[in-house]
Simulated assay, not measured.
Amino acid sequence: MSFSIATWNINSVRLRMPLVERFLLEKAPDVLCLQETKCPDDQFPSTAFRKLGYQHIVISGQKGYHGVATVARRPIELVEKRDFCTMGDCRHLSVRVTAGDKKVLLHNFYVPAGGDEPDPGINPKFRHKLDFVAEMNAIRADHDATSGSVLVGDLNIAPLEHDVWSHKQLLKVVSHTPVETENFEAMRKAGDWVDLMRLNVPYEQKIYTWWSYRAQDWESSDRGRRLDHVWSSQNLASSFTGYEILREARGWDRPSDHVPVIARFDLE
Rank of each mutant, 00 (worst) to 15 (best):
R50P: 00
D217E: 08
F44V: 01
P112D: 02
G88S: 09
L130Q: 02
L171H: 09
V150T: 11
D41Y: 13
S175R: 11
P260S: 12
I57K: 06
W252D: 08
C90D: 01
D222P: 00
H258A: 11
F132K: 10
N183L: 11
H66I: 01
V31A: 14
Y203K: 13
S212M: 05
C85R: 12
L130D: 06
C39Y: 02
P260F: 02
R188G: 01
A186W: 02
P124K: 09
I122D: 01
S212F: 04
S94N: 02
G191E: 06
D257M: 08
I57A: 03
T7I: 01
V150K: 07
E77F: 03
A141H: 12
A138N: 15
W231A: 07
L199C: 05
V133F: 13
V104F: 11
I139Q: 13
C33H: 04
R22H: 12
L199A: 08
S212Y: 05
H229C: 11
R247F: 04
H92N: 04
R50I: 05
A72I: 03
L24S: 03
D266A: 13
G100Q: 06
V31K: 03
I57E: 14
L25P: 00
Q216Y: 04
A145R: 14
S232F: 04
V13N: 03
D192L: 07
D89M: 09
E268W: 02
R22E: 13
V71C: 11
W231G: 00
A141M: 05
T70S: 09
R74P: 00
V194K: 15
L25C: 07
A69W: 10
G53V: 01
V174N: 07
P112R: 06
Q35I: 10
R188M: 09
K38W: 07
T98R: 14
P112I: 10
S147T: 15
K172L: 07
L171F: 00
S238N: 03
H56R: 04
W252M: 04
E182F: 08
R198V: 04
Q35T: 15
V20G: 05
A6G: 09
R247S: 13
F84S: 11
H56N: 15
V58S: 08
A138E: 13
A69E: 06
I76W: 03
A190T: 07
R250C: 06
I262E: 00
G67D: 14
Y203C: 02
V230Q: 15
V97R: 03
P112E: 06
M187C: 11
K27F: 03
